[in-house]
Nucleic acid binder design. Structure first.
Length: 425
RNA sequence: GCGACUGUAGCUCAGCUGGUUAGAGCGCUGGUUUGUGGUACCAGAGGUCGCGGGUUCAAGCCCCGUCAGUCGCCCCA
């Protein structure tokens, strides 16, 4: 038992319903993002370490402790991607995509972070991602949020989820406000929780979302960013809110929603739920006008979000299974005809799954167990008579039965006749 | 990195205050029965009780360690 290989901590194997949920989220995302004009972008699963180190800041814990870093055979430092944005920004710079700006892009796939797994948290996890590169107006923020809202609606989880919104302002606003926040908490250092005293040194803004009940009163009276908005930053935020309003998107202001990295500008947003334990954020993003310039490219405004596929999969209702039928040969010598019938029905658009069991009876049992929508038996009256197909539908809907019967009869006509005991020929 | 809880058959679990050959359901295999086919019944296979120590006449049950999982803290790009 202990010798058998085990999957790495924080990874998952899925089949059946779990896999179907996962798949459903991705299919829905691809459908909806096309409706909003987001094209597909593909970027590598690993990049030179510098790509992420530069985007995240070399000294943060995030880089030093939480990335899957390795040396390739050429001796170069590589990282499995912990996020999408840095790779997309690298590609934007490297390929000169600025000539195509503004660019609306979407992707999904696996990401890797060396973290302690818990509910909704994995070491290999998966996200959906949407970005608009090269558009600096609040309308672009509205556009990406509208995509997120529409996705959540189509997944049927919008009712479980609330959009929370904040602004980090422009660099001038952010600098003034974060200095004020730091000074405020420093002045009340003794009243802070132990964790928050540590945050005071590392990242004072993080005190704002402290989970410590004792910090709550202090946090409530902390300086508000609204008081530090430049005229421009305030207008940006107002135009964003007006755009959301016009788009019929409801939100609540969360003045304590922050991003740690200073290339974030203006909009910050998260769709959060109460249904997933400690990991409430289902979709989160913001505007990162400083990133591409920071990475050595042209100054380029950009806004985007990412959403956890696992978390969405946990929220969605079980996806309805597609109707799948089976073809069963009534005797071993009819197996060739069963293959022909299967091919004809598949060409006509029927989903056909064959069951691999020696006995007819066992195949029927498997068909029932796997939830097939119906069975096509290949039979004949006696050894001399020609084979025919007998349809046995498991569905109860009479009209659907007839429609299926007619389609199937047409599909095999010329080679086989179709019968059914409980249907008009 | 820290904490709490959990770890018995392929899966989900039961196992009374430690007491003889460790159980059920589902699944799997074989058989009987039924049958324009989806049923029911019978039988069988399958367990170093996560692993290693310890206490005891006796440990799946108690103690220590270790590994793994779950959830939470930290962190959150």
């Amino acid at each position: 038992m202990s010798k058998a290989p085990q999957k790495p901590r924080g990874t998952q194997d899925m089949i059946g319903e779990a896999a179907a949920r996962f798949d459903h989220v991705i299919e829905t995302f691809n459908r909806v993002r096309k409706l909003h004009g987001f094209g597909r972008v593909e970027v590598p699963v690993f990049e030179a370490t510098a790509v992420f180190a530069r985007s995240l800041g070399e000294t943060t814990d995030v880089v030093s402790k939480e990335m899957y870093e390795f040396q390739d055979r050429g001796g170069d430092a590589m990282c499995l991607r912990p996020e999408f944005t840095a790779g997309i920004a690298r590609a934007y710079i490297e390929n000169g995509w600025q000539q195509l700006a503004p660019l609306k892009l979407a992707t999904w796939g696996p990401l890797f972070r060396y973290e302690r797994p818990q509910k909704g948290r994995f070491r290999q996890f998966h996200q959906l991602d949407a970005e608009i590169l090269g558009a600096g107006e609040p309308a672009a923020d509205v556009e990406v949020i509208a995509l997120g809202q529409h996705l959540l609606e189509e997944l049927g989880v919008a009712g479980d989820v609330e959009l929370t919104l904040n602004s980090m302002g422009d660099p001038e606003t952010r600098a003034a406000w974060s200095a004020a926040v730091a000074a405020y908490f420093a002045a009340h250092r003794g009243d802070l929780s132990e964790d928050s005293q540590r945050r005071l040194e590392a990242n004072p803004l993080r005190i704002l979302d402290s989970k410590d009940a004792g910090d709550a009163a202090l946090v409530a009276n902390a300086p508000q960013i609204d008081d530090y908005f430049t005229v421009e930053a305030g207008q940006f935020f107002e135009r964003l809110q007006a755009g959301l309003q016009a788009s019929g998107i409801a939100w609540t202001r969360n003045a304590r929603l922050v991003r740690g990295l200073d290339y974030y500008r203006h909009s910050v947003f998260e769709f959060i739920t109460q249904s997933l334990g400690a990991q409430g954020t289902v979709l989160g993003g913001g505007r990162y006008d400083g990133l591409i310039g920071h990475m050595g490219g042209p100054e380029t405004p950009a806004v985007g979000w990412a959403a956890g596929i696992e978390r969405l999969a946990m929220l969605v209702a079980e996806p309805a299974a597609d109707d799948v039928f089976t073809v069963i040969a009534d005797a071993p010598e009819l197996e060739t005809d069963a293959l022909i019938v299967s091919a004809l029905l598949r060409q006509a658009g029927f989903a056909i799954e064959r069951h691999f069991a020696a006995k007819t009876k066992r195949q029927i049992e498997l068909s029932k167990k796997r939830g097939n929508a119906g069975i096509f038996f290949v039979k004949r009256v006696n050894v001399e008579s020609p084979p025919y197909v007998y349809a046995r539908y498991l569905t109860e809907d009479r009209e659907e039965q007839i429609s299926l019967f007619e389609r199937a009869a047409a599909a095999i006509s010329g080679r086989y006749t179709l019968n059914a005991s409980d249907l008009p020929g």
